[in-house]
Amino acid sequence: MTQQYSAPPGPEWLQQGLARRRFLQWTLAASAVMAGVAAGGFFWLRRSPLDQRRIPDWAGELSAREFLLFDRCRRVLLPTEGRDLPDTETVPVVANVQRTLSLLAPAPRQQLSQGLGLFDNAAVFRHGRRFVDLDDETARDYFDRWGRGLVLQRTLATVIKQLVYSAYWRDERTWPALEFDGPVSDRWGLAYLGNAPMPEDDGDVQTGIPE
């Protein structure tokens, strides 16, 4: 067992954000969303036409809404049109995100799931629809606003971006356009040096340690 579970973030990080001077900019409606989180769900929030979409069989470790969110994010965050980069239809971005999330301990995974739900649903109060239903420009503006927002908003915007970015750039099809070399040792035919030579005549240091 290599893991010890990390405790989920405590409520203080949320309170810290809410106590800041930008509290007044945070709408009453958003507070209602927080209450929704605390109550344990978003079932009462806006449904999306995308909710009818069939989720691929391989995405079993993501909830349907998580899948839709990350699938939307890859398009919003990684616009490849006009660039010498592979389209996110061909790079398994969401599958790679799923792989990363599958390694999270249960407590932070649950917290993240709630946070993703908040990110998606909080768009309702400003835009009248969930994040997954925003057009590309509005969705990017939403990310930028959250990046300048409260602690919780900054956290979620950053975490989602980093999950999606690493899921894309880890794929070697994205490397040639950037001239990134990737693994090189075998390609260069480097020799393996083996273990370091055993020290010879290895006397003690013995400077005297107070007991």
Binding site: V76, L77, P79, R140, Y165, W169, L178, F180
Partner: peptide, 16 residues
């Protein structure tokens, strides 16, 4: 490049 993608916040979408 994965590390570089996480070090800065140049903006969302095209700026990134």
């Amino acid at each position: 490049i994965v590390e570089l993608s996480m070090t800065a916040e140049p903006g969302t979408g095209a700026p990134f």
